[in-house]
Design a protein around this nucleic acid. Structure first.
Length: 423
RNA sequence: GGAGAAAUGGCAGAGCGGUUGAAUGCACUAGUCUUGAAAACUAGCGUACCGCAAGGUACCGGGGGUUCGAAUCCCUCUUUCUCCGCCA
């Protein structure tokens, strides 16, 4: 959520930047500013009336003490009028604030200056490409066939016990999954991230804190009886650890990592996008989260990008990095780099990580602040990234490392899997 | 799930209808003293909004109510603790 003083001072810049999201927000922003003027005026007069009421209350108390009940009763009439007036003003103030908040919730984060224009993922800017395409002297087999052939993943039994999009990993498939999780967590630890195991269900306040709510309820599973949401990403519980917290400047950088399953409803998905492991309702992911000083957040973003890249290097996967265009940028992000690995049998790029800087957008909702050198509280910056999402890594590993009689395991994973080949 | 008790500043802990944004202790910050440190002493030490400022307003788990006036009384929700039941 954007801060109103910021909107006031940067109205034109914000409107210009929103054009990269193909969004015309001039009217909304002006409404917010108008409401803010009303808010200030209303509060001023309410505060005055409350101050007068406080003064009178003291006076009445003194009068009673000195036995002047008649005079006191006279003043009571005055306070009654004042109270009615201040109550009206309070109601008006609440209405204004609610209207303002509803408008603010409609505004996405302001894209960073380097975010390119564009409508969809087709307009994302490929920053770099690494590695070479896996070559086969036979027809490469897609991962869903490999998974079946070697008994790694059972999609059908997942349908039986839960539904489509809930695969069951088995045998060496399950072990490879666990190996990847441990490998990713160890890599994060080596990069200075402190591991947490957060809840997999969160309350409404947490959903608001990181920006999944309002408006994106449709993406999350909701447990109605207890009014809890299954997390769509570990970003939600981990970032919310710092909700309503004022950290010390010396605490920066705060770096957390965590493995969780992620649950997404993915309503409206269909076709080749959802085949096999490409898109699931439940998947595993190791997430990295940073809380940073505003002056250091882009440095931190750079570090996170390098971290994700180094993991993909170690796994020996062909990958590329894309800078998301305005049209593809998530609601809460100021900038996002996507990582895609090449799936050698499907002949397509699969998104395996998203690394973003949210600047103060989440911090504002979270009330996540720090005390600066002058002793003033200031909003911190939040960042996060997948390091990494499992299913598409698994898909790429199976497809890219397939040989005629099995699937090889990348060397870095062997200490984790305790086997070097699936056959 | 049933029965009780409680929720106050970073922590501990007073206050139980009026001058209490809140005693006191600890922690923390700055200063004095000291070669340095400790101790001692002095001062400071919550958040948000309005205001150029002086200052004002709100907040004692959340919400609502009673009252001229509420941290203090009432209702409600949430959370924590104790006992019982159930249970990985």
């Amino acid at each position: 959520m954007l801060q109103i003083p910021y909107l006031r001072e940067n109205r034109d810049l914000v409107i210009e930047r929103y054009t990269r999201r193909n969004l015309d927000a001039a009217e909304t922003i002006d409404q917010i500013i108008t409401l803010d003027n009303q808010r200030k005026a209303t509060q001023q007069s309410m505060d005055q009336d409350l101050a007068e009421g406080n003064r009178l209350a003291k006076e009445i108390g003194d009068l009673y003490k000195s036995g002047k009940a008649a005079e006191a009763n006279e003043l009571k009439q005055k306070t009654k009028v004042l109270k009615e007036k201040s109550n009206e003003e309070k109601t008006k103030l609440q209405e204004i604030e609610e209207a303002q908040l509803n408008l603010l919730y409609q505004l996405p984060n302001v894209p960073n200056a380097i975010v390119p224009n564009g409508k969809s993922d087709a307009d994302n800017k490929i920053i770099s490409e690494h590695g070479t395409k896996a070559k086969f002297d036979f027809d490469a087999v897609p991962h869903w066939d490999l998974a079946k052939k070697y008994g790694l993943i059972d999609f059908e039994v997942g349908v039986k016990i839960a539904g489509a999009g809930f695969p069951v990993y088995m045998g060496k498939g399950a072990k490879l999954q666990r190996a990847l999780i441990n490998f990713f967590l160890d890599e994060a630890e080596n990069a200075g991230y402190s591991e947490v195991v957060p809840p997999h269900l969160v309350n409404e306040a947490s959903g608001y804190g990181t920006g999944q709510l309002p408006d994106k309820e449709g993406q999350m599973y909701h447990v109605g009886v207890d009014d809890l949401y299954l997390i769509p990403t570990a970003e939600v519980p981990i970032t919310n650890i710092y909700r309503d917290v004022i950290v010390k400047e010396s605490d920066f950088p705060i770096k957390n990592s965590g493995y969780t399953p992620c649950f997404r409803r993915e309503a409206g998905s269909y076709g080749k996008d959802v085949r096999g492991l490409n898109r699931l309702h439940q998947f595993d992911k190791v997430e990295i989260v940073q809380i940073q000083h505003p002056d250091k957040s882009y440095e931190a973003l750079d570090g996170m990008v390098k971290h994700v890249a180094s993991i993909l290097e170690k796994l020996g996967l062909q990958y590329r990095i894309a800078l998301l265009c305005g049209g593809d940028l998530g609601f809460t992000a100021a900038i996002t780099y996507d990582f895609e690995v090449y799936s050698a049998a499907q002949n397509r790029w699969l998104e395996v990580s998203s690394v973003s800087n949210f600047e103060t957008f989440q911090a504002n909702r979270l009330k996540l602040r720090f005390k600066n050198e002058e002793g003033k509280t200031e909003l911190a910056h939040t960042l996060n990234g997948s390091a990494l999402a499992l299913p598409r890594i698994m898909a790429a590993l199976l497809e890219n490392y397939q040989v005629t009689d099995g699937i090889n395991i990348p060397e870095v994973l062997v200490p984790y899997t305790k086997f070097d080949k699936i056959d």
